[in-house]
Design a protein around this nucleic acid. Structure first.
Length: 277
DNA sequence: CTTGTGTCCTGTAGGC
DNA sequence: TGCCTACAGGACACAA
């Protein structure tokens, strides 16, 4: 569910609350959401007693930097979210809870239990369960994500261009919503073979990607009707009002055509048959 | 290496 | 109303 703009929004909101706070206690209510280390006791002891010095983001991963050089890494996957709440308050679908002192707790809520939390030591090495993080491409909203980089990743590939936008080694942080929206804004059909895009189309796509991600951040992410994306204080995002195709199947595009829905790489895909070529 | 498919989970929406 | 199926914003393993 949460893609780059949502995770970035969470990162910003969370920073204001948790930086400088010590994690006084850890409770894991569901064992299989701990991705590393394998032992829950080891996980808890790596985090307990540490102070959060920064909150970082890499793609869709949220990273709490700890004062001993370790990191608490969180991936929300499809349905996870984080809540800052009173210690006495219990939430449904709680999977892990980090006490922050002053009666506050950071709670990892994950109905589907697909999300994961990891406790890393200061080695800078990623465990094999986090090779996705190790192999991740440059941040798409940063200067190192150049049009040339994107062009090189698409060149010669026969797979659908949307599939490559969803590849975290290519466009980290991009998920189903923002890939559809970027392709619409670039005027490129999602099922086009990646290698068939002209130089002009690649540059348009590159520009659209960066723009739509930045806009998503500006509007604090997308909260859909069935979405569980909420900010740590329970607020919702605003980008759902600015979506042009995602979730708008059978609705009119601004050009007058009807927005279509298909399936690419197993993911539902939305596009305008007139605006996208 | 590339590409397509199945799997992990659980809640919910929609069809009958 | 109630049951059943398909699907959901992600990522990875695996087979061909």
């Amino acid at each position: 569910m949460p893609e780059l703009p949502e995770v970035e929004t969470i990162r910003r909101r969370l920073s204001a609350v948790v930086i400088g706070r010590r994690i006084t206690a850890v409770r894991v209510q569901r064992a299989d959401i701990v991705g590393f280390p394998t032992s829950i006791r080891a996980f808890a002891s790596r985090v307990r007693g540490k102070t959060v010095t920064a909150v970082l983001r890499r793609g869709k991963y949220l990273i709490l930097q700890l004062d001993n050089g370790g990191q608490l890494v969180i991936h929300l996957r499809l349905s996870g979210h984080l809540a800052v709440t009173r210690s006495s308050h219990r939430l449904s679908f709680e999977r892990a809870r980090f006490e922050l002192g002053d009666g506050l707790a950071l709670v990892f809520v994950e109905p589907r239990a697909l999300g994961r939390i990891y406790a890393l030591e200061a080695t800078g090495q990623y465990p094999s369960v986090l090779t996705g993080l190790a192999k991740m491409g440059p941040e798409p909203i940063s200067g190192s994500f150049t049009a040339e980089f994107l062009a090189a990743k698409l060149r010669g590939r026969r797979t659908a261009v949307k599939t490559l936008l969803l590849d975290q080694r290519v466009c980290c942080g991009v998920g189903n919503i923002y890939s559809d929206e970027a392709l619409f804004r670039a005027g490129v059909r999602p099922d086009r073979r990646a290698g068939s895009l002209s130089r002009t189309e690649v540059v348009r796509l590159w520009r659209s990607l960066r723009q739509v991600l930045r806009d998503g951040i500006r509007w604090c992410g997308t909260t859909m009707r069935d979405s569980r994306y909420v900010l740590p204080d329970g607020a919702t995002g605003g980008f759902q009002h600015r979506l042009r195709v995602f979730g708008r199947t059978d609705e009119p595009c601004r050009c007058g055509s009807t927005i279509q829905r298909g399936r690419i790489g197993g993911r539902s895909t939305h596009f305008c048959p007139s605006c996208q070529a």
